[in-house]
């Protein structure tokens, strides 16, 4: 059932113009970052590309997820979906999964960059693979936040802004407000811990740390749970 919903979601993403805008923006953005560090004498690594690309996702992932539930609420198809024998978690998971597959397609230009790098130099494959894995985990978290935000409103713009806002809190707001100026090291560590970009940095370096996995997977699970609760709340609100 989850897969049925995921499949339909994926197909319909490819029918929406926004998907192509996002695909195009990511291809151009990531290639620009890649070419900036693509010079003779520079190390054959994608670390700086990855570090830059993760910022791009703050805006592109919400653009993918904003329509997931909002659009169905607006058009009324949500009523048909929720009156068929599926449960709330299947709907939320299906939509998130469909968006995540699309997100993996979105990352495909990075594979092209890696291939180019491989042809002209001899990059280490390990950090490239962990970097990509890390991006998928970042995407999984952002899209889970996006599904949650999209269940709030039938307005896609609101869903988009709410997602960016929720992402911004741990990613930059906390960092800039409290980060380096904070004298208390415990607070500083906490702020660094909740920052997505800090958590991602290890993956870009080529490290696989169980703590990073725990961060991304628990964050994703938390927002998917909240989204399911929000969808279910229709029954008792």
């Amino acid at each position: 059932m989850t897969l049925t919903i995921a499949k339909r979601e994926l197909a319909s993403l490819f029918f929406s113009p926004i998907a192509y805008v996002v695909l195009g923006a990511f291809a151009i953005g990531s290639s620009t970052f890649f070419l900036q560090s693509f010079e003779p004498g520079r190390p054959a690594s994608m670390r700086s590309t990855f570090d830059a690309v993760v910022w791009l996702l703050v805006f592109l992932a919400p653009a993918i997820s904003m329509r997931l539930i909002s659009e169905e609420l607006r058009s009324g198809t949500f009523e048909r979906l929720m009156t068929s024998p599926v449960n709330d978690a299947q709907v939320v998971l299906g939509k998130w999964l469909g968006a995540l597959v699309f997100f993996c397609v979105l990352l495909s230009p990075l594979a092209v960059h890696a291939f180019v790098l491989e042809r002209v130099g001899s990059p280490e494959l390990g950090p490239i693979l962990t970097g990509l894995l890390g991006l998928v985990l970042v995407g999984a978290l952002y899209l889970a936040i996006g599904v949650f935000a999209s269940a709030w409103s039938q307005n896609q713009i609101i869903a988009f802004l709410l997602t960016v806002f929720i992402i911004a809190v741990p990613t930059f707001a906390a960092y800039y407000v409290a980060g380096e100026r904070m004298p208390d090291p415990a607070v500083r560590r906490l702020v660094e811990y909740i920052s997505v970009n800090q958590q991602y940095a290890d993956f870009a370096k080529g490290l696989i740390d169980i703590r990073n996995f725990v961060y991304f997977l628990s964050g994703t699970a938390l927002f998917l749970f909240l989204a399911t609760t929000l969808v279910a709340s229709r029954r008792w609100r």
Partner: peptide, 25 residues
């Protein structure tokens, strides 16, 4: 169930949509 004002996924083909509904059931 046919909800009021017949909400449908407009980007899908008729048979595609019916297959989707069938799978849900």
């Amino acid at each position: 169930y046919l909800p009021e004002s017949t909400p449908l996924y407009t980007e899908m083909r008729v048979t595609e949509y019916l297959h989707f509904c069938g799978r849900l059931f």
